[in-house]
Amino acid sequence: MCEDAAAARERPTPTWDEFSAAVEHAYFPHHLTVRSDRPPVGGTLRSVDLGPVRLARIGWGSEVSVESDHPGAWAVNVPRSGVLEASVGGRHVLSLDGQATVCPPDVTTSMTRWSADCAIVGMRVDADHLAQEIPSLVGLSVTQMPAQVDLRRDAGRAWVALLTSIGGEMLRQPTLLADSVVNRRLGSALTAAFVLACFPDSGRGPVRPRIVTQVLDAMEADPAADWTAAELAAVAGVGIRRLQDGFRTYLGMTPTQALSRIRLARVHADLLAGRSATVADAAHRWGFTHLGRFAAAYRARYGVAPSATLRG
C-alpha cells in the first residue's frame, strides 16, 4: 500500500480496523490496542516490497500498543520521532530516534507504547534470508542478533542513510519494483548494511594470506560470475570486513578491484588473440556490463583503448 497525502485526503477516513488491516498487509499481522477513541486521521502508511526484504513507514497518529509474533521474519523498527517502547523476549527495550528495536521471528513481541507522534521506518527481513547472510558477512550466527541497535555510530548511520535512500527512490520510481534483479540487489545491500550495523566491531583481527588466495582462486575460476561481497566472503568463510581488510593488507586493493583486474586481463587476452569480433563481445563475456566504465578502466590499466588492442 502506498499513498501520498493528496490521495489520502480524497478518500474517506478509514476505521481503526481498516487501517490495522492495511498495516498487516504491508508489514506484519498483529493485535492492535488503541489508547484513543479518535479515528486514525493522522495515520501514515507506505511500503516497498523487495522480495525477502520489505520496507514500511508506519505512524498510527494516536498512542497505541501493538503485539505481534512476526511470523517467519525479523522486524527492525526505527522510530524517526516519538517513543517506541517494547518487550522483546522478556527484555524491556525503549527506542528513540537514533536507535532501532530488533524483533525476532516467531516470538511474541509487545510494543507496549507506540506514542502518537511516533513514526517508524521498518525493515522486514525473511528469517531464512538473514540466517544465510549473517555467517558470510560477520562469521556469526543469527542467534546472536541484538534486541536494540545503536544507529548513531558510523555503521548504523550508513544503514539508515541507505534505508532512507532506497525507500525514497523506490517510492519515486515504482517501475523499479518490477525488476527482480534490482530488488535482489537492493535487498541484499540493505541486509548487509544492517548486519554490519548490528556488529560494528566484528571482523577485526589478522587475516591470513590463505583467505585472500581462496577468493582469488574462485574469481579466477569464474570471473564473469555476478559475484557479491557476501558470496566472496562466504568462499573464505569470513565476514566481509575481514575479507576487505585482508585484500587491502596483502594486495593493496579491494576484492571488487581485484575482480575487475582479473576481468580486464581476460578481455585483454581475448583482444590480443582475436578471439572476439568486437570489444563489446569480449567485455560482456567477462562480466562487464557498462561499456563506458569498462573502456575507462581498460585504458587506465593498459594505456590504450580496447579498440586499439583489437585492431592490433
Rank of each mutant, 00 (worst) to 15 (best):
123 M>L: 08
189 A>Q: 14
113 R>C: 05
163 L>E: 08
158 A>D: 08
184 R>W: 00
259 L>Y: 09
255 P>I: 01
171 L>C: 04
300 A>H: 05
89 G>E: 10
139 G>S: 11
306 P>W: 06
29 P>D: 15
17 D>R: 12
247 F>A: 11
285 R>C: 09
102 V>A: 04
135 P>C: 10
147 A>Q: 13
158 A>K: 13
77 N>P: 00
278 T>Y: 03
191 T>W: 05
28 F>H: 01
49 D>L: 08
158 A>I: 02
285 R>H: 14
269 A>T: 08
163 L>Y: 07
219 M>P: 04
306 P>H: 01
116 A>W: 06
280 A>V: 03
93 V>I: 15
101 T>W: 02
203 G>F: 02
95 S>A: 15
216 L>V: 11
113 R>D: 05
130 L>E: 00
138 V>H: 04
181 V>D: 14
99 Q>D: 10
70 H>A: 09
207 V>C: 13
255 P>W: 07
119 A>H: 11
239 G>E: 01
150 D>E: 12
298 Y>D: 01
41 V>L: 13
19 F>T: 04
47 S>K: 05
63 E>S: 14
312 G>F: 03
222 D>R: 12
237 G>Q: 05
211 I>M: 03
141 S>P: 02
107 V>P: 11
275 R>H: 11
274 G>W: 10
149 V>I: 15
100 A>I: 11
174 P>S: 09
290 H>P: 01
263 R>S: 06
103 C>P: 00
209 P>Y: 09
307 S>K: 13
155 A>W: 01
72 G>Y: 07
84 L>T: 00
290 H>I: 02
235 V>W: 04
217 D>N: 14
274 G>M: 09
191 T>I: 09
13 T>P: 12
46 R>P: 01
99 Q>W: 11
70 H>M: 02
70 H>L: 02
292 G>N: 11
275 R>L: 11
45 L>E: 04
259 L>V: 01
299 R>E: 13
285 R>D: 10
237 G>R: 02
88 V>M: 05
251 L>Q: 14
135 P>F: 07
75 A>W: 03
258 A>K: 13
100 A>T: 03
149 V>W: 03
242 R>P: 01
246 G>D: 04
229 A>P: 07
109 T>Y: 07
110 S>R: 12
227 W>R: 14
296 A>V: 11
90 G>T: 06
184 R>I: 00
227 W>T: 02
305 A>Y: 05
3 E>K: 06
70 H>K: 01
75 A>P: 00
44 T>H: 05
